[in-house]
Design a binder for these strands. Structure first.
Lengths: 199, 199
DNA sequence: CCTAAACCGTACAGGTGTGTACGAGTTATT
DNA sequence: AATAACTCGTACACACCTGTACGGTTTAGG
């Protein structure tokens, strides 16, 4: 996790501080993504640092969570854009690739979502989701014009269905009812049918 | 909420106790279903009772939550069975009706799910979900034999998709991005496509 | 009407978490 | 080498929640 800093850094930090911030975020991401009921003390101990040091860099628990969400979102965007390079392939093929990419990112970070949802509010989380949301929205809009996606539903609902099922697949994997390998295939076939024009 | 008691009552309770139990469950159901971060004190105050009185009937917070989940599950089963009376209509038509029934029940109780999930564990919740889960599973199995449902996916995944999307629609309504009236229609069309045999 | 059941408020014990204060030690950087 | 940045541990203040104990009061029901 080398590029841990997210915003503009007004104060030039020392190298060890920089390093610790990275460690904190990496450890916290690990903890928050898998376990539930994680405290700041847990994060500090797991990172091998003092609890106070953590507060020196992240003034509150909420601030840390926000940084984590922003980081994972940025990673998701990046991962999606890497898949969206060739401009105008058929949208359904494109979506299949995007599903694979999004799945990989979301397969980590699973539980981070619920933490953020309950502690930061759904509105804030929606705002953060917006960029990646819009990418899929545009993709579906293009697929509609190409005739490969259905036109009888609000586009917002269709986007929601995409992400909802991806999240669900993650939950299923975590519950042991699904293997991480077969998830993308199921997602592709289910979403393919769900988004195609009805007969 | 007159039939509040769920199990066998070994000890004959007094009438006011009976009444208070009903009040507690109704109030708690209301609170847990809409708000987040509800404490026992909140429940008691909202029910107009002393906090100690609540503990007199439900020995722990977990016990109260369990009773609530069981109650809502029983309601869901009942609501589904009312829709499954006529034995062998085509399964896809049948599913459409079941969606409507399940939707109505789930439209209340929305947030209760997350509370139960985080505080009672996903395994326990799965056990409670099992009866209603199996009803849909059987319905899908019959639909497969009738040729109206797809056969290229594990049946467990298909059932999961059904409930996942219903839950998602509930979240969308709560977020104000969807009206409670149009949800069933969207669910029916989306699930219809998702479960039908692929082209 | 009388008893036992059920209620009330208050208080206590124990736990967990967040955020801050302080003084002293360590390390990077110039 | 000297300074400023950083880190450490400990401790404190505060808040919140759960569960229990106690003594007094109301109320249902035979």
């Amino acid at each position: 996790m080398p590029p841990a800093r997210q915003d503009e850094d007004t104060s030039p930090r020392r190298a060890d501080a920089e390093r610790n911030i990275s460690t904190i975020m990496a450890t916290a991401l690990e903890l928050f993504s898998t376990n539930a009921g994680v405290s700041m003390a847990d994060v500090a101990r797991s990172a091998g640092l003092g609890r106070v040091t953590v507060y020196a860099h992240f003034p509150s628990r909420a601030a840390l969570l926000q940084a984590l969400v922003r980081h994972s979102m940025a990673q998701a965007e990046q991962s999606m854009d890497a898949e969206l390079t060739d401009g105008d392939a058929p949208a359904d093929r494109m979506l299949a690739r995007v599903i694979g990419a999004t799945w990989r990112v979301l397969d980590r970070y699973r539980k981070l979502r619920v933490h953020a949802l309950s502690e930061l509010g759904s509105e804030w989380l929606s705002e953060q989701h917006d960029p990646v949301f819009q990418r899929v929205e545009k993709l579906i809009a293009r697929g509609r014009e190409q005739g490969v996606f259905r036109r009888d539903q609000p586009i917002g609902w269709m986007v929601t269905v995409v992400f909802s099922l991806i999240h669900t697949a993650g939950d299923e994997v975590e519950a042991g009812r699904l293997s991480s390998g077969e998830a993308p295939g199921l997602l592709r076939s289910t979403l393919g049918s769900a988004l195609s024009p009805p007969a």
